[in-house]
C-alpha cells in the first residue's frame, strides 16, 4: 500500500513537471502589459484577442488551419486506398509502399524536410503554398496508414463474405460494410495528422518558409526577432486545440487500442 502511495505521488509530480512549462506560458499569456513575466502582472485576455485581430497572427492561424485541414485530408486519401489494397488483396510486394509510408515518420524530420527542399527547388515550385500541403500529406501519411491498418484488421472478413453472398460486389461491399466499420479509424488518422501538421515546423519551413507563415513559423520568427505575449496566448490556444482533438479521439475511439495495447488478433 505504501509503495502505491509513493507511486501516486511520483506520478502526480511527473504530471506537474510535464504541465509546468505550459502553466508558466499560460501565466505569461495573461500579463496585462507587454512583458514576459511570471507570475503575471495584472490580468488581461487581450493577447488572446490579438490572435484574431492582428492580421499577421490571424493570417498565420488561417494558414495553419488550412494547411492542416488540406494536408491531413490528402494523407487520408493516400493512406485509405493503400491500407484497403493491402487488406483486400494478397500482394506482398505492396508492403514496400507501406514501409515507404512509415519511413518519413521514423527518420529525423530534417531529412524529409531537406528532401522536399531539394525537390521543390529542382522542379521550380519552391515557395508555392500547395507544396506545403503535399509535403505534410506525405510526411504524415504514416498516421492514417497506421490507424486504418488497425481499422481494417478489426473488420471480420466474414462480414465481407456475407455481403458478397448477398450480391454485393467489391464496390458495394466497400460502401455498405467496410466504410461504416473503419470510419472511426479514418477519423482518428485524420485527427492525428491534423494535430501534427498544425504543430509541424521544419518541413513547412523548408517548403514555404519564406512565402507563407504558419503559426509555428511565426512563433519561431517572433522568438528570433522580438518577444510578444501573443506567442504565449497562441501556444495556449494550440495546446487547447491539441488536447480537445485527442480528447475527442479518446471519446469516440479506443485510444489504448490505437496505440497498440492489444494485438491485431484480439
Amino acid at each position: 500500500m505504501r509503495s502505491a502511495t509513493i507511486g501516486s505521488v511520483l506520478a502526480g509530480l511527473l504530471a506537474l513537471l510535464l504541465a509546468v512549462p505550459l502553466l508558466v506560458v499560460a501565466g505569461v499569456s495573461v500579463n496585462a502589459k507587454k512583458t514576459l513575466s511570471f507570475p503575471p502582472q495584472g490580468f488581461s485576455l487581450s493577447w488572446y484577442a490579438e490572435i484574431f485581430t492582428d492580421p499577421g497572427w490571424r493570417g498565420a492561424l488561417v494558414n495553419s488551419l488550412t494547411l492542416a485541414g488540406l494536408s491531413s485530408a490528402l494523407s487520408v486519401l493516400i493512406a485509405f486506398p493503400l491500407a484497403w489494397f493491402l487488406w483486400r488483396w494478397k500482394a506482398p510486394w505492396a508492403r514496400a509502399f507501406e514501409i515507404l509510408g512509415m519511413t518519413p515518420f521514423i527518420l529525423p524530420p530534417v531529412i524529409t524536410a531537406l528532401g522536399f527542399l531539394s525537390f521543390w527547388s529542382a522542379i521550380g515550385a519552391y515557395g508555392q503554398q500547395w507544396t506545403a500541403v503535399v509535403s505534410h500529406a506525405v510526411f504524415f501519411v504514416t498516421l492514417p496508414l497506421v490507424t486504418l491498418s488497425l481499422g481494417f484488421a478489426a473488420v471480420d472478413r466474414s462480414y465481407v463474405e456475407a455481403a458478397s453472398t448477398m450480391g454485393a460486389d467489391d464496390r458495394a461491399v466497400l460502401r455498405t460494410v467496410i466504410l461504416p466499420l473503419v470510419r472511426p479509424y479514418m477519423i482518428s488518422g485524420f485527427a492525428f495528422a491534423f494535430v501534427l501538421s498544425l504543430n509541424e515546423y521544419i518541413v513547412a519551413y523548408m517548403s514555404v518558409g519564406f512565402t507563407m507563415e504558419t503559426l509555428p513559423i511565426k512563433i519561431f520568427n517572433a522568438l528570433r526577432y522580438g518577444y510578444t505575449p501573443v506567442m504565449a496566448s497562441v501556444t495556449v490556444l494550440f495546446v487547447a486545440i491539441t488536447a480537445v482533438i485527442f480528447g475527442l479521439i479518446a471519446r469516440f475511439g479506443d485510444l489504448p487500442r490505437l496505440l497498440g495495447a492489444w494485438s491485431k488478433s484480439d
Binding site: P21, L22, V195, L196, N199, E200, F220, A232, A243
Partner: peptide, 16 residues
C-alpha cells in the same frame, strides 16, 4: 498532447 507540441512551442515554453 505534449508529444504533438511543436518544437517551437516546447522551446518557447522552456525558455520562458
Amino acid at each position: 498532447s505534449v508529444l504533438s507540441l511543436s518544437e517551437v512551442i516546447i522551446g518557447f515554453a522552456w525558455s520562458t
